[in-house]
């Protein structure tokens, strides 16, 4: 029974949402919008649970003095401080909240993003090895694209930049589209399997 109820809800709502996609009538649109509103309400409740989990995890860590526990103080105080500042002073462009957002959070985000350059270099060094025929082809294509897009490329051959561009536009695009076809069918199959109750891993098993 505990399993059957979620399965019935999933099947019912799944079929209704599919029908909603096909029916443009205002009643159908109203239904779609109501379901979306329900999702927003559920997400808000879930956020309360999630924040509860965050607070519980970090306060336990502080209490038990686990590894690197001072960072948990930073996390919790940051969360509380930003909430108070946001509620008290608003989030207008000139507010303290926005100032902190633009001058602390945005640069921190940029810093994390910038780390990509370092990680790309070390990952490329480690993995771009001509271990097999396929790996060698990949390596050759990567070399042509990298050199072709660099200013040095034209000194090696004036045709190299155009060839690099061709690799991006034709073989690269073709393989991406091939993967996307598979992804599309996988998505449809997953959705149908869940709606029809064939896939039950999300409920913990087959029973």
């Amino acid at each position: 029974m505990k399993r059957r109820i979620p399965l019935v809800i999933c099947f019912g709502i799944g079929i209704l949402m599919l029908a909603q996609f096909m029916i443009p009538h205002p009643i159908s649109r109203e239904f779609g919008s109501t379901v979306n509103k329900w999702y927003i309400v559920l997400a808000a409740f879930a956020l309360v649970l999630a924040i509860g989990n965050l607070i519980r995890h970090h306060s336990t860590k502080i209490r038990r003095k686990k590894t690197d526990w001072p960072y948990s103080i930073v996390t919790l105080s940051g969360m509380v401080a930003m909430s108070i500042i946001g509620f008290a002073g608003g989030i207008d462009p000139d507010s303290l909240y926005q100032t902190i957002y633009l001058n602390v959070l945005a640069p921190l985000g940029s810093t994390m993003f910038a780390l990509l350059a370092y990680y790309m270099a070390s990952a490329a060094y480690r993995s771009f090895r001509a271990r097999s025929l396929e790996a060698t082809l990949l390596l050759a294509a990567a070399f042509i694209v990298m050199i072709g897009f660099m200013p040095f490329g034209q000194y090696i051959s004036p045709r190299l930049p155009a060839f690099a561009e061709w690799i991006m536009k034709v073989p690269n695009m073709a393989s991406q589209r091939g993967i996307m076809f598979g992804v599309a069918f996988g998505s449809i199959a997953t959705a149908l399997k869940i709606i029809l109750g064939i896939e039950r891993s999300w409920l913990g098993g087959k029973k």
Binding site: I179, M180, G182, V183, F185, G186, S187, A189, T190, E199, S201
Partner: peptide, 8 residues
């Protein structure tokens, strides 16, 4: 891609 959807 689709191997992800076949995994389960």
């Amino acid at each position: 891609g689709e191997e992800l959807y076949a995994a389960s």
